[in-house]
Design a protein around this nucleic acid. Structure first.
Lengths: 379, 379
DNA sequence: CGGGTAATGGAAACCGTTGTCAGATTCAAC
DNA sequence: GTTGAATCTGACAACGGTTTCCATTACCCG
């Protein structure tokens, strides 16, 4: 027993081949040099605390012994700083990397982290996974939560952790910092644009509303019970605006897609237009879906905007290029703001909400609807 | 002094307002319950080691005291497992997120991590930054290094860390696991395709060769001294193949671009064709550059492939869509393989190299060159 | 020569866990 | 009542550092 201890002290272990000798530690290095651990630690962290000569000796001996410098985990434990922020994203990474809007947020966040010299720790949390252990295991100084349903177990696990948290877009949690656009206002502006053009026969394409898949039309109940807050708000804002314009929202078809690709947008548009050919405007809650709707319109031989108006949301580059009428939001800034907010949250008291500026960008995909006669007989 | 200790034991601290009371720890929770720390630890990590009833009490008291479960950092220190792999990428994140080939690798890596339930820790290391502290600070069980110049200080810092490392694409370091395509073979196949078509007047567009910017023609010296191994190998393979076909490599213009965007590809092509209008084929070391070259060809009114042949490398979706002749490599698999290799490296002895299959995909952008007469008088 | 001030290095506490191992308790069976 | 097996529990030693005092020495100044 004693022998074991002595061996340990010198970084050796019984019953193991020599070549797997334990890594050198700060203590073994100090022993080798005949100085205290403090001094070795100072050599790395506070060069002004010891003579240059001794420091040189320490570093040189470290190199000789293959000591890689203070262990980051031990250091984190002592200093209570991990030097990383966690990113919770209940979504396949493929999605995160494929949607330009999401990439923008990620990039902005990464930039903020880079500036501060802290790492970005992607927490493994695919939609299916119920195992929140990964959240518990993440050694981070704070979390950014991006676009997560309000009933996701990972979210709960994050909020229980005693570290600052910033939520981007959704969900809305009381007392937690948040960064996002004013979705209601933005969508209202879009609705009023369409109303003023004269559209009353509309259809809506929206993203996933809950964790269970429903690639179909959406009931009023499901709309108002949506766990994805952003989608819910956007639908509610549309409902409010069009109701005010005399449209009975219960008659407005809304099609949901669980996955978020251009192809899904196209198939949703097809489903919508097959069942409701009288629709004059397809409002999409994202540009990706809208790009799909444009593709489907072309496939059907519908001219945009003469025969059909299509609108999106986000303002991604591809949308701009195709002249889509959409709401632009500064996604890069969104991510950057989230990062900065999180990294500065040590010296703040109350929760903070940052609302980003959005801008209605009218492109070449919205125009007044044709009258019924025009539809049948041409202009 | 004694008082201080007693206070500490109960999670209190002198001279601080009550509301900032110290977070509960496993120890304070055990004290509260009147059981040992072991028991509390077991409640979380080995449910079979204590009675369900006691476990329930522990968890319930934990909730009441706001104990968030065992501290991840302390746990990592004790278990020597961080539950995360680091990704070193000496590049602005913007690049990583914008180049589809890089996104593919990232996505594959993320998938492998997700499968294993470990986090992915992005190490902040922009090109300019000389500060490798972030590498030292990263609490990870291993590193994936992706496309880094062989003289990058971060690379050295990673290799010094006593954790397994896998390098993707470049650099090539002896004794370190590596995943990547057989660049030389792939490029040779491409060269032979062009040679057999009859091209002898070629020009090359390549990516950054070193950490210092050089948006210009590249000397032979710079080519063979390139710190980005992949680029060097590709150029060398081209040189070998075309030399064998009787082309004096010293006369072949090579244009380098530091940044890697379609626009940079276009400007490089312009620079090349302005100085060497007799070129019949522009060989690019990436699809992104090739897409730019195609754009520039169109701008000049050059028909592809009749007037100019353009080839790429990577096989990204956009390239496929535009019919680019290119070398396809499975980028998603590359990332996934790197992740799996890293995560399984505990029980392996020697270094391992995984070479990925590539495939020459002849598209609509390569054809025999026009003869000089044709160039002036039409076919 | 007394005493104040840097400069330098060290002792010990602490960060919050986990794992080992031996001892304690319970319970059924003989 | 004894025994043995099956469960639980708790003391103790790591894990690898950082940081707050202290102690020592050297130097400077009147």
């Amino acid at each position: 027993m004693l022998l074991q201890n002595v061996l340990n002290r010198y970084g050796l272990r019984m019953g193991r081949p020599i070549r797997t000798r334990r890594q050198a530690t700060l203590a073994s290095l100090a022993a080798e040099l005949g100085v205290s651990r403090t001094t070795v630690s100072n050599a790395y962290n506070r060069p002004d605390q010891l003579s240059p000569e001794l420091r040189r000796r320490v570093l040189e001996t470290a190199r000789r012994l293959g000591y890689p410098g203070p262990d980051p985990v031990a250091r984190s434990l002592r200093t209570r700083k991990a030097g990383a922020v966690g990113l919770l994203l209940t979504e396949n990474l493929s999605y995160a990397f494929r949607d330009p809007a999401a990439v923008g947020v990620l990039e902005g966040l990464a930039l903020a982290c880079e500036d501060a010299g802290v790492g970005l720790h992607l927490v493994p949390a695919s939609p299916g996974r119920e195992d929140v252990a990964a959240v518990h295991r993440a050694g981070v100084d704070g979390f950014v939560v991006y676009s997560v349903p309000d009933d996701d177990p990972h979210l709960g696990a994050v909020l229980e952790r005693p570290v600052p948290t910033v939520i981007v877009d959704q969900p809305r949690v009381d007392g937690v910092d948040r960064v996002g656009p004013d979705d209601a206002a933005a969508v209202t502006a879009m609705a009023e644009h369409l109303i003023s053009l004269g559209h009353r026969q509309i259809g809506v394409l929206c993203m996933r509303l809950a964790r269970e898949r429903n690639d179909d039309f959406v009931s009023i109940q499901r709309q108002s019970a949506a766990h994805f807050h952003v989608q819910r708000i956007r639908l509610e804002a549309l409902a409010a605006a069009f109701s005010a314009a005399g449209v009975d929202w219960a008659t407005v078809p809304v099609v949901e897609r669980f996955d978020h690709t251009v192809d899904d947008g196209a198939s949703a548009a097809r489903q919508l237009l097959d069942a409701y050919p009288q629709v004059t405007a397809v409002i999409c809650t994202s540009d990706i879906l809208a790009l799909g709707a444009l593709a489907e319109a072309e496939r059907r031989g519908l001219r945009v905007p003469q025969d059909l108006t299509v609108t999106g949301f986000d303002g991604i580059t591809e949308a701009e290029r195709s002249g889509l009428t959409t709401v632009h939001q500064p996604v890069l800034e969104k991510g950057k703001a989230a990062g900065k907010l999180l990294l500065s949250s040590a010296d703040r008291v109350g929760p903070k909400v940052i609302t980003l500026q959005t801008e209605l960008r009218v492109g070449r995909t919205s125009a007044p609807p044709r009258t019924a006669e025009e539809r049948w007989f041409g202009p």
